[in-house]
Amino acid sequence: MHHVVLDRWSRRTSPLHRRDARAKILAALALLVSIATTDAGVLPMLAAYGAIVAAGFLAARLPLFQAATRAGVVLPFSIAMALVSWVSGDPARAASVVVKSYLSASIVLLLIATTPLTELLSGAEKLGAPRVVTLVVQFLYRYLFVISEQVQHMLQAARCRSGSGNSGTRRRFQAAAGALAVLFSKSYIRAEGIHNAMLARGFRGRLPAIRTQRFEWADFGFLLAALIAAAATGLALRGAA
């Protein structure tokens, strides 16, 4: 599955994986802003920013081709929207929207594929994100797979009872609502259990970091290089256009 591969990628080691999460977040934001504010042709954009992203994936020792296909998950939506603008008579805009969204998605992919989510969130927290939100994101990500599996079990059980058989739409709608309510109650009770277990293990409102992060000179250098690359590419493309 998508996220499992990403999780594995983010736990590898490479010069890029070792960088502080804050440096990587700021670098990614700089590149995203550079892409968002630049309106050059499709090919120059793809070549310039594509080269930066590709260099990033190579430095992180991640499979380039797999990453390129993975970033393609944005394409269905972008292409649909692009078709809308094409039909409305703006093909240039349509192409630029597809390219920009694809490049932006690959930069986010590079960030998440080189930074474990816990580090990313603690980096975001140090940059000023509210702790309630980062904590909730962490719990959400942790229990996403647990609860998804529970849904699969419930759906399978319903199929075994032929619950989705040939009853009317209204009945099946009611059954789905009941299933959702049961899932809600199971999640609610699970959350109470989780909190008790956490208290038993000494939780004091903050999740422990697995690896302490320190902003080193290398991180500073990396951030500076990324900022220069983002600014230079944006300016160069603007000059060429």
């Binding site: 309630v132 904590l135 909730v136 994101v137 962490q138 719990f139 959400l140 942790r142 229990y143 996403l144 647990v146 609860i147 998804s148 529970q150 849904v151 699969q152 759906l155 709608f173 789905a176 609502a177 299933a179 959702l180 899932l183 809600f184 999640s187 609610y188 699970r190 959350a191 109470e192 989780i194 909190h195 956490m198 409102g205």
Partner: peptide, 19 residues
């Protein structure tokens, strides 16, 4: 706080149930 996180996971997972 764990409740909020688990509820987020619930909404994610609930989208698998088709109406």
């Amino acid at each position: 706080i764990p409740l909020l996180g688990v509820m987020g996971a619930f909404v994610f997972a609930a989208q698998m149930i088709n109406f």
